[in-house]
């Protein structure tokens, strides 16, 4: 009987070896270990055996069972692993296929520039103020030292909506309005972004509508050297720490002295290239010390207060920053243009 068990064990192990699926394995298990299986059958015949033999045969039967069982488990694990491998193989994808797009829009480049500049000045202790786009002559011109017959009004032919109201030609009226709110008490530290309008024919470099950011710093004893320091800090934050600025005398009715501020060219490092028209410098800001009459008209005593103001064209900054060559792109809203600014 022991031999018979031995034999059955061998047969079973052989069949386990030959099984090529979990299902085949299961039938091997049922065949040999099931209630009607040959081992059970052998055990049933144990009644004929002697007392001594019985435990031996029983032990042998258990050994054989255990061996079959363990081989079955072994083989099952093996087959499962193989099946998993095959499943994974079947599930593999072409990783070079494009992923599902997460829809994202882009910030308008002018907004991106405005916000970046706002953030720099907020970091320098400024606040952001806004004002109306339809302004009175009083705030757009007169309070900025441009009386009705002033020749500088030539520079900014404007869109009037009544005899004394117009689309603002600059964001400086916001400065006048803000200064009045301070009622002669400094310090005033503001930047004013916004849309402005001038009677220009639209072409690659002109737009009847454009954006400006102007800034104002009024306090006791503000000096021209402070203007230079603050604007240099701004320029280095915006354009890069390696840039320097240069002041050139200019004229604005609401500042005296007035200067144009140039930044050293970032392309050629100041040696001269096409971008900077071979001068090594790029004009980026208009600035100056607030004209005493402007301070006075807005309620500040020019004997105890002084200040500086500055202004910059947002389109120009964006054109410089992104290499855009036609100002009309900003207002055409071609999706192929807008789409490029997702990472501004």
């Amino acid at each position: 009987m022991i031999d018979r068990l031995q034999e059955l064990g061998k047969e079973a192990i052989q069949e386990i070896r030959d099984a090529d699926s979990v299902k085949a394995l299961e039938s091997v298990r049922v065949k040999y270990l099931g209630k009607k299986g040959p081992i059970t059958e052998v055990l049933r015949g144990m009644g004929q055996l002697s007392e001594e033999e019985r435990p031996k045969v029983g032990q042998k039967a258990n050994e054989v069972r255990e061996e079959i069982q363990s081989k079955l488990e072994e083989k099952t694990a093996e087959l499962e692993e193989k099946a998993l491998e095959e499943k994974l193989k079947a599930e593999s994808v072409d990783v070079t296929l494009p992923g599902k797009e997460v829809k994202r829009g882009a910030r308008h480049p002018l907004t991106a520039v405005v916000e970046e500049i706002e953030d720099i000045f907020v970091g320098l202790g400024f606040q952001v103020t806004e004002g109306p786009e339809v302004e009175t002559d009083l705030y757009n011109f007169e309070k900025l030292n441009l009386p009705p017959e002033h020749p500088a009004r030539d520079m900014q032919d404007s869109f009037y909506v009544t005899t004394d109201m117009l689309l603002r030609t600059q964001t400086s009226p916001v400065q006048a309005r803000t200064m009045e709110k301070y009622e002669g008490q400094g310090p005033v530290k503001i930047v004013c972004p916004g849309k402005v309008y001038r009677r220009d024919d639209d072409d690659a470099t002109h737009s009847h509508q454009f954006m400006q950011i102007e800034g104002l710093y009024v306090d006791h004893n503000v000096r021209m050297s402070d203007l230079k320091g603050v604007l240099e800090a701004f320029v280095q934050k915006y354009f890069g720490a390696d840039r320097s600025i240069r002041l050139r005398p200019s004229f604005f009715p609401f500042t005296e002295p007035s200067v144009e501020v140039d930044v050293s060219c970032g392309i050629c490092g100041g040696h001269g290239c096409r971008l900077c028209k071979h001068t090594g410098w790029i004009e980026v800001l208009g600035s100056g010390m607030v004209h005493p009459r402007v301070l006075e008209m807005s309620g500040f005593d020019p004997d105890t207060y002084s200040g500086f103001a500055f202004g910059m064209g947002v389109e120009r900054f964006a054109m410089l920053k992104y290499g855009i060559d036609d100002i009309r792109h900003f207002y055409t809203n071609d999706i192929r243009f807008l789409n490029q600014f997702k990472r501004v």
């Binding site: 706002e118 000045f121 907020v122 970091g123 320098l124 202790g125 400024f126 606040q127 952001v128 400094g186 310090p187 530290k189 710093y217 306090d219 006791h220 004893n221 503000v222 000096r223 021209m224 050297s225 402070d226 230079k228 320091g229 603050v230 240099e232 800090a233 240069r246 002041l247 050139r248 005398p249 200067v259």
Partner: peptide
């Protein structure tokens, strides 16, 4: 103008914010 020094205002500092 190149001989004007570069300084920062001496007045009180103010917090900037939106």
């Amino acid at each position: 103008y190149e001989y004007i020094p570069t300084t920062l205002p001496k007045g009180v500092t103010t917090p900037g914010f939106l």
